[in-house]
């Protein structure tokens, strides 16, 4: 009790930079400015219920889910390889895997543009082979590719860290009790790695569902995601109220998805937000 004052700076920080902004967003989302001042309203949320906006939400969730699944399918074996092999090589592999993350996120995504564009590296290569150029950039696939590329490490690292902590004697014990390689994976390794899988899914899904940079650069504005929508409202349209309302909806979606995840996690021994 005596050292309560130590937490005051953090409290101030939380108030100033987390609580207050959130309160402001909430305030904007349920108010509108008219000639006779500020009026309380739900019209922004009602507006979001229009099909055109719901479709954007749906598309965001869909693309984020696809990216998450692909990240999981690519990332799990990757994490297993990292966690399983000889020590020296493992360190180098993890290092190589993390290095691109030190580079600027925008830069990496721009790099993909030059690879994928009509006269880009890939199409040049294709025409060199005598094949017709492909429409690669500004497609849904390009957006998913961008998400997977950027967020894959967030899937691999938590799974890798859980996998490498699994006691080898548990695997030996399973073998000893008659389990072949597949059974060992199914009954011991995979269930024990679930916490890593869950946090990997969360860490990929959340940025993927809110991204606006990837969809703008690689989707070319044709694939408006919810992140783009929010950005537009604030920066182009100037309708802060509607933008705030969409942000609130987005937060709700994320909170719900985390809630579902942590509920599942709790059933498997663990604790989360809910």
């Amino acid at each position: 009790m005596k050292k309560n004052w130590l937490s005051y700076p953090y409290l101030v920080w939380v108030l100033l930079f987390i609580f207050l902004p959130l309160l402001l967003v909430l305030f904007y989302s349920v108010t509108t400015r008219t000639e006779d001042g500020i009026r309380f309203t739900f019209e922004h949320f009602q507006r979001f219920m229009e099909p055109i906006y719901l479709r954007v939400l749906l598309r965001s969730v869909k693309l984020a889910l696809i990216s998450t699944v692909i990240c999981l399918l690519l990332g799990y074996p990757m994490a297993m390889i990292l966690a399983g092999n000889g020590f020296k090589r493992k360190q180098i592999m993890v290092f190589l895997f993390v290095v691109p993350m030190w580079m600027n996120f925008l830069l990496r995504t721009y790099a993909w543009m030059t690879l994928l564009e009509r006269k880009g590296l890939l199409n040049t290569f294709l025409s060199w082979l005598g094949l017709a150029p492909l429409n690669l950039l500004y497609t849904e696939e390009a957006v998913v590719l961008g998400m997977v590329y950027n967020f894959l490490p967030f899937m691999v690292l938590p799974i890798y860290s859980v996998l490498s902590k699994i006691d080898k004697s548990l695997i030996e014990a399973a073998e000893d009790l008659g389990a072949d390689g597949v059974t060992v994976f199914r009954k011991v390794i995979f269930p024990l790695s679930l916490p890593g899988v869950l946090s990997g899914i969360t860490m990929v899904f959340m940025p993927a569902v809110t991204t606006f940079v990837i969809s703008r650069l690689l989707g070319g504005g044709q694939f408006t995601l919810i992140g783009n929508l929010i950005e537009q409202q604030f920066l182009l349209v100037g309708d802060w109220n509607f933008g705030s309302a969409i942000s609130m909806v987005m937060m709700l979606v994320i909170l719900l998805s985390i809630g579902v995840m942590s509920k599942y996690e709790k059933e498997n021994e663990g604790s989360g937000l809910f």
């Binding site: 014990a173 000893d176 009790l177 269930p191």
Partner: peptide, 13 residues
């Protein structure tokens, strides 16, 4: 054959 391991190696899940 079956083994009783030094640190038991029971499955925690």
């Amino acid at each position: 054959v079956n083994t009783v391991f030094q640190k038991y190696a029971l499955f925690p899940h």
